[in-house]
Every structure is written in structure tokens, then in C-alpha cells.
Amino acid sequence: MTMDDLWFLADEARQRAEQAYHRLRRDHTDFIEPVHSRRVSRPRFRTLATRVKATGTPYGVHTVVRRRDDEILLVRHEGVDMWVLPGGEVDDDERFTEAARRELAEEAGIDADYGGLAMATRVDIRCDGHQLWGVMPVYRARADFDVELSVNDPDDEISTARWFDVGDLPADTRDRDDLLAWHGHVTGD
């Protein structure tokens, strides 16, 4: 791919991100909108641009699952060596909510009652003179208190799933500040 082709790919990806973002705004209310910036290598930029062009999202969709009002479900992602929200890439012709439910079932072995969008995180991605952005939808859901967790991740990236008290999230929780901001938004803290 030449430099002009990479610019064209990034431009198409930005257009798809706009479409995905506007669809989320049309369909949901009362969510927070964090912004993150990533500087990546040229091969990684191409990979993320291809994902955004296909779905509007560079890192897929995720779910923040609450049990009671003070516990959040996290999964241990061995590839990034962090606790993360369950989630992942959107398959072809799959709606965001369908992907979120599928990923939750694979990574934690549960189904939950979905209640809308918690976050629409904007991810700005840069590489040399190229830039694009994508949206990362994070849905909100509730699970029963006694639900059993089990990991059945076909990619073998997730090693365990566990409930954490919101006030005691592990230091190595990805996007920890976003989770705390969302929890404060929801509870009015």
C-alpha cells in the first residue's frame, strides 16, 4: 500500500467512524464520551484503519456489567496483561449489541440484561502524518448476583473473569479512570 493508499484508507475509516458514532447518538442517550489518543506503528495503523473502515471501531465493542450497584465484571486479558471489560471485535454483518453479547458469553460465560450505552469512547489514532479516529462502544448491563462465571474464549486471550468492587478496581485495569467516571455518572457521585 502506498502512502496515498494509506491516506485514502484512513479517510474511508474516518467516514465509517462518523456513521457509527452518529448511529450511536441517534439510538442512545445518557452516556459519557471519553477521548483517548494512540500513536502506533505503520503496520498497526493499517490494521486499525482496516477495522474502522469495516465497522467504525478500532477495538470492537465492550460491556460494563454490574452486579448490585458496586461491583463490575472484569476479565484478565493475557495479551495486554491487564484487567479489561469483556469485549472484542465485531464480526461481518454483526450489530454492535450482538457482538457485545457474544463477547460477554465467550469471555465470562454469562448473559446479562442490557440497558443501553455506557460510553462512546473516541479513539484518535496517529502514525507519522496520518490520522484517523474510531469509536469504541461500551454497553451497560446487569447480571444476577449468583451468576456463575466461566471463560470460553476461542482466542485464548482471556484467562479469568472476576467481579470487583468499583472502589477497589485493580491498578492494572485498562481505562480505569473511564470506568470510575462512568460509575460516578450513573450513581451521581
Rank of each mutant, 00 (worst) to 15 (best):
E78A: 13
E71F: 11
G56R: 09
D81R: 12
M82W: 00
D91A: 15
G56V: 11
F96Q: 07
R68H: 09
T47I: 01
R68W: 06
W83R: 01
E98A: 08
V90E: 00
H77R: 05
A49M: 11
D70N: 12
R76Q: 06
A54D: 14
L73R: 09
T47P: 02
V80F: 04
G88A: 06
V52R: 09
E78C: 09
G88S: 08
P58T: 07
G87P: 10
K53M: 13
G56C: 06
E94D: 14
V65Y: 07
L48E: 08
G60S: 05
R67K: 15
E98L: 07
G87L: 03
Y59S: 14
D69S: 12
V64K: 07
M82D: 00
D93Y: 05
A54I: 03
P86K: 00
V84T: 07
L48K: 05
R51A: 15
Y59W: 08
R66N: 08
G79C: 04
G88T: 02
E98C: 00
P86M: 00
V52Q: 10
V61L: 08
D92L: 12
V90I: 15
R76W: 09
H77C: 11
G87D: 03
M82R: 03
E89S: 14
R67N: 14
E98I: 08
T47S: 15
T63P: 03
D93V: 07
T55K: 10
E94T: 08
T55D: 05
R67M: 13
A54K: 15
D92M: 09
T57D: 06
H77I: 02
G87R: 00
W83K: 06
G87A: 03
R76V: 02
V75P: 00
R68V: 10
E89H: 11
L73T: 11
T55N: 13
L73N: 12
R51F: 13
L85G: 00
G87W: 04
I72L: 04
V90N: 08
T57G: 04
V61A: 05
G79D: 02
V90R: 02
T50E: 15
T97Q: 13
V75F: 04
L48V: 06
G79V: 01
T97F: 04
V65M: 11
P86C: 06
L74H: 07
